[in-house]
Design a protein around this nucleic acid. Structure first.
Length: 198
DNA sequence: TAGGCGATGACCT
DNA sequence: GGTCATCGCCTAC
């Protein structure tokens, strides 16, 4: 059986959509991915890999590894490097529905409703216990502490829109989510992004 | 080496 | 709806 996600010649937005509905296992919690954003690496001004630095170096390497970065000093965000290597493309996991390991997720996010445990990239990383220590984890290795699972169900409908919080390429509609899913985070435009059409 | 700036989220009105 | 905490990275001196 062939898995379309790993087919040659797909671009990042296509792979991002194929990640929707797929399971992600991390530190005792299982998540169904409901919202993602595609980042086009060297071709995408909004990507951390647009300029090659020690931080973004991992995205230029082997695909299907975890790229973790800190945002605003406190939050962690988890990306999956999709390759091909020279393009430095990656997909940010923005939200998901916890389907197993509720005790661990609730421990990490006390007082939060189950549906909101992994809503937003910072919250998702916290619920899953993902930190900089997970940087570079091979996500296709079933024995790794963070790894991809099967695609449980093909989402009935996928919607798309501009990416959240980015100031460059703010109108590129490379954010994808499962239509109507209650775990999807709210859209918030970057205050630094120029007005549409400029 | 110093200053500016976020691929955010929580809280306040 | 808007404001703001907070600190690691990147860029320019």
């Amino acid at each position: 059986m062939t898995d379309l996600l790993f087919a040659d010649g797909l671009d990042v937005p296509e792979r991002a959509q194929l990640l929707l509905g797929r399971l992600l296992h991390a530190h005792g919690v299982t998540l169904r991915i409901t919202e993602v954003e595609a980042y086009g690496g060297t071709r995408d001004p909004a990507s951390h890999a647009f300029t090659r630095t020690p931080r973004s170096e991992i995205m230029y390497g082997e695909p299907w590894r975890l790229y973790v970065y800190r945002s605003m000093g406190i939050h962690h965000c988890a990306n999956i490097v999709t390759g091909p290597s020279e393009t430095a493309s990656a997909v940010l996991i923005r939200a998901g529905e916890v389907v197993d390991g509720f005790e661990r997720a609730r421990e990490r996010r006390p007082g939060v409703a189950d549906l909101a445990l992994a809503r937003g990239p910072g919250n998702l990383a916290r619920a899953l216990g993902i930190t900089m220590a997970d940087l570079g984890t091979p996500v296709l290795d079933a024995a790794a502490s963070v790894h991809l699972g099967e695609r449980t169900a093909v989402p009935a409908q996928i919607e798309s829109g501009p990416r959240v919080g980015v100031s460059k390429a703010a109108d590129t509609p490379w954010r994808f989510w499962v239509a109507g899913d209650p775990t999807v985070s709210a859209y918030k435009r970057s205050p630094r992004a120029p007005m549409p059409g400029f």
